[in-house]
Amino acid sequence: MHQYDRLQRILTGKPFHYTVMFFIVASIAAVIGSSFETMRPYRHLLFGINYLASFVFLVEYVLRIVAAPARYPGRSPFRARVRYLFSFYGAVDFVAVLPFLLVYLFKDTPSVHIITLAYIFIVFKLIRHSRSFRFIGEVLSAVREELVTAYTACGIMVCFSAILMYYIERNAQPEAFANIGDGLWWSIVAFTTVGYGDIYPITPLGKLLSSLISLIGIAMIAIPTGIISSSFINLLQQKNKKE
């Protein structure tokens, strides 16, 4: 078990941490740069950066599989590795290495565009290597039950208003409210007070419902915001006391 512990210390050490962080940022920057037409002459260079980063992620992935028994000490080596493979971070690490493993197999096929989409999931690797992202995760985890309750209430209100608005407006404007899905889109836009203006009620009853939903949405969206803010402040105070 000692060799696993030493490997785990390497994986959690600062040199390894900053090396992986560098390649994460470089890969994200390369993906962003490749979307600009002015960067077309440098597409091969940007692809090379992504490919090198994927190789680094592959090495990290293999090392984390090997060191999994040190991360889950109460399990056998096999069970610990299976636990890592099917964990959130294990899934993110696996997706991050897919371009390295598959891009040359499908280089001249339309599937290569789907494979390169895996690069966008590299953003999620920042969660492990960024202290700020980990702190946000702790904040959300501390109030997950309260957030589930709040968002469930919001979902019920959105669905109710979507169905009601569909039956109110479908005869007045059948093209805009062709089905309840259109009503759901309107309800989400109105509930969050975004107001795109592509779908809106024209009947007096529909306008009244829209006004009520917008007012209710302002109040109900503030509930999870307040819950998260309160958790954020509490965890900050706890960390300050420990320090």
Rank of each mutant, 00 (worst) to 15 (best):
M1C: 05
H2R: 15
H2M: 10
Q3L: 11
R9W: 09
G13S: 14
V20S: 05
F23H: 03
I24R: 03
A26G: 05
A30Q: 07
I32S: 04
S34Q: 11
F36C: 00
E37M: 08
T38Y: 13
M39G: 04
P41K: 13
Y42W: 15
R43I: 09
R43C: 00
L45P: 01
G48N: 07
Y51V: 03
S54Q: 04
S54T: 13
V56I: 14
V59W: 09
E60F: 11
Y61K: 01
L63W: 06
R64M: 11
V66S: 00
Y72D: 00
G74H: 13
S76Q: 03
P77L: 05
P77M: 03
P77H: 03
F78M: 12
Y84P: 02
S87M: 07
D93E: 13
V95H: 11
V97F: 09
L98G: 05
L101V: 14
L102W: 10
L105Q: 07
D108K: 10
P110C: 11
S111N: 08
V112N: 08
A118G: 12
Y119N: 08
L126R: 02
R128V: 10
R131D: 09
F133V: 05
F133A: 10
R134Q: 11
V139G: 00
V139S: 01
L147D: 05
V148E: 03
T149N: 02
Y151K: 06
Y151G: 01
T152Q: 05
G155E: 04
I156P: 01
M157D: 02
M157I: 15
S161P: 04
L164D: 02
M165H: 07
Y166D: 06
R170Y: 10
N171C: 09
A172V: 13
Q173M: 07
Q173I: 07
E175I: 12
E175R: 13
A176E: 05
F177L: 05
A178R: 15
N179F: 04
N179Q: 04
N179K: 03
N179M: 05
N179D: 15
W186T: 07
S187Y: 10
S187I: 08
V194R: 13
G195E: 08
Y196C: 09
Y196S: 09
D198F: 14
Y200V: 03
T203I: 01
L208R: 04
L208C: 01
L212C: 04
L212D: 02
L215V: 10
M220P: 01
T225C: 11
G226V: 07
S230D: 06
N234Y: 13
L236H: 10
N240F: 12
K241G: 00
E243K: 15
